[in-house]
Design a protein around this nucleic acid. Structure first.
Lengths: 155, 155
DNA sequence: TGACAAAGCGTGTTATAACACGTAGTTTCG
DNA sequence: CGAAACTACGTGTTATAACACGCTTTGTCA
């Protein structure tokens, strides 16, 4: 990958502002990261979104989560959680059961198979994170994380 | 927006590594930025992807670009450029013409209407970039851009 | 120069995302 | 206690993305 963004997307003119370049850099980098992540997950038969759901549900064990709570915790916006869960239920990765207290709620939990898939994937995921970020070193990683945090503050 | 990522996505356990937190931070921030960008563009009737295409084509005037060249310049991966351009052609934002030299190529150019839309959008886009990033200041923006560039180096 | 490989697009099809609406259960408040 | 407002989901439908394949044109090389 060409590290220089202007060269990467073959833009003739320089960026009009640092602010513009920053936004494009964040979006471009995330896009490449997600693409690589999807590629890495492909052999395991799940998408990055599904991986995200499984991780959240593993963390929510043994209670499970209702649909909206799950949606709010996801890394990227996902308006149609219902059918995402439908597909994952078909794949036996999650199970749904209506709550007995509040019968409007449908609590979703990760299945044994879902946990097994996560276990299989985990080391590859860690390796992926390391491959992409370890070379930056602790100090720079901390700086990057803090700067991105400052960006989100105004969102 | 809650600037703390762990709180933002309501994760119970702390992140397992800085590398993981960095990846999640980049993806989360980009997701929020793109969402806000889409929202801002909505009144103008174009998506962020279409805006990206229009910008690229404006920069490529007066020559235009063929499909693959356009695809390679896009900020986020887009495998089905053909139908994206189909829709934009329907909306009269771009025009396609087969190249006379190499008749395999279809050169796409931005139309007068497309340029007009870009003109209308431009100030809103600049305002958006400023709103999200200006408060960081020159030095921090430069640092952020350089760090993201270093990340892309390993992709 | 004629066959063959490769490049550049488009199309058919399936999967997923996005949007609007409807239904059942729950809470609130007169 | 009963109607209205609200909440949590699901469904129907349309738009867009993703994937595999095939056609046309071009370049190459025996």
């Amino acid at each position: 990958m060409t590290p220089d963004l202007q060269e990467d997307i073959r833009q003739r003119k320089p960026f009009t502002s640092l602010e513009q370049e920053a936004q494009l850099s964040v979006v471009r980098t995330a896009s490449l990261l997600v693409d690589a992540f999807e590629q890495m997950l492909k052999p395991f038969g799940i998408t990055a979104t599904q991986y995200n759901v499984l991780r959240i549900l593993r963390g929510a064990e043994p209670d499970g989560l209702c649909r909206n709570e799950l949606r709010d915790r996801m890394l990227t916006r996902m308006p149609d959680v219902t059918r995402l869960l439908d597909r994952m239920e078909d794949a036996k990765l999650v199970a749904r059961a209506r709550d007995s207290d509040d019968r409007r709620l449908v609590s979703t939990r990760i299945t044994a198979k879902g946990l097994r898939v996560l276990d299989e994937v985990d080391s590859a995921v860690t390796a992926e994170h390391m491959r992409r970020f370890h070379h930056l070193g602790r100090t720079q990683l901390r700086t990057l994380i803090d700067l991105l945090s400052a960006v989100r503050e105004k969102l």
